[in-house]
Design a protein around this nucleic acid. Structure first.
Length: 300
DNA sequence: GCGTCCAGGTCTACC
DNA sequence: GGTAGACCTGGACGC
């Protein structure tokens, strides 16, 4: 039995550009159906239990969340609604960004498409683990590692879908487990150490969402975690709503060379200078600029 | 089949 | 603070 709960979407929000904003929607427990344009996820209750598969779709301007659990209590239903808002960034105000790019002929499409909301996981912990999975490897390997984490450590729904593992579940595994079962390679001791630190509350990644620290200080905090360098920290900063950093990686650099530098390699300083006019929004500006063709494909 | 390169980088030791 | 070398994995590529 399923139950549908509804959520009003704000002005300047479009569902497709949001769920298609970057690769996160391809990483389990997220799944994206590009034919029906639905995004699914496996939610858990406040105790990290009762895994529940839900599919989010746009229904004439409001969001329909179809939940495969007809006996949701009020707390769990509220949690699913709040986490959906967080995943899709419904409370994020991009008007200042849209205003900033208003006179940029090549970027005006972002505001026209209501793009710029980068989909994210319900918890910063999940985004942190996934970000480490993106470092120094191909996208297919990122997907493999994430799939292994979910399939081997997640809790299963009645229909066999699995949740993202909790820090506690990850802390209970050894570095050898991550190396042999998750195929995480040199990242294996990092995962064990990080999960343990979060489980015993030595580190609280969720606090980054409302941190009063200046961005450069928060970035330093993030980089204290093994496996998190400049790229990973700046990617995480974007996911907690700060766009000061470009989060340059080999893919983003290659896209820039192709689009703005006649397919010629250049220094990072040149890329930084190119987007400096966008100030604290430069990280979002480069990401939207480099992924423009994704949206053109979608429209065609 | 085998070796090499490299992909959505980071860490450590050393200077 | 800057830099060289090492680090897991697995797909692509050349031979």
């Amino acid at each position: 039995m399923t139950k549908i709960i509804y959520l009003d979407s704000p002005e300047n929000f479009s569902f497709r550009p949001t769920i298609y904003s970057h690769g996160w929607s391809e990483l389990l427990p997220f799944e994206i159906d590009e034919e029906t344009w639905k995004l699914s996820y496996v939610f858990t209750d406040n105790n990290g239990k009762n895994p529940t598969y839900a599919t989010i779709s746009d229904e004439n301007g409001r969001l329909a969340i179809e939940v495969e659990n007809s006996e949701l209590n009020e707390d769990f239903q509220a949690k699913i609604l709040n986490e959906t808002k967080h995943i899709l960034r419904l409370d994020e105000d991009l008007n200042k960004f849209y205003k900033l790019i208003e006179k940029q002929k090549n970027l005006r499409w972002i505001a026209d498409a209501n793009a710029g909301r980068l989909v994210r996981s319900p918890t910063v912990f999940e985004d942190l683990i996934k970000t480490i999975c993106t470092t120094n490897c191909s996208w297919s390997l990122t997907k493999n590692m994430t799939r292994n984490l979910v399939e081997k450590l997640g809790i299963s729904t009645k229909n066999g879908k699995k949740s993202f593992p909790t820090a506690e579940a990850m802390a209970n595994q050894t570095p050898e487990f991550y190396r042999d079962e998750i195929r995480a390679g040199y990242r294996s001791p990092y995962f064990h150490e990080l999960a343990e630190a979060v489980a015993i509350k030595k580190i609280n990644p969720e606090s980054w969402l409302k941190s009063d620290l200046p961005t450069n200080e928060l970035k330093k905090e993030m980089k204290k975690i093994k496996g998190v360098g400049d790229y990973a920290a700046e990617n995480l900063l974007k996911l907690v709503g700060r766009y000061d950093g470009l989060a340059l990686d080999s893919w983003l650099r290659a896209q820039f060379y192709k689009k703005h530098n006649k397919e010629t390699v250049c220094e990072d300083t040149q890329i930084t200078e190119f987007y400096s006019k966008f100030g604290s929004w430069r990280g979002l500006a480069i990401w939207c600029d480099m992924t423009e063709r994704w949206f053109k494909v979608e429209k065609s």
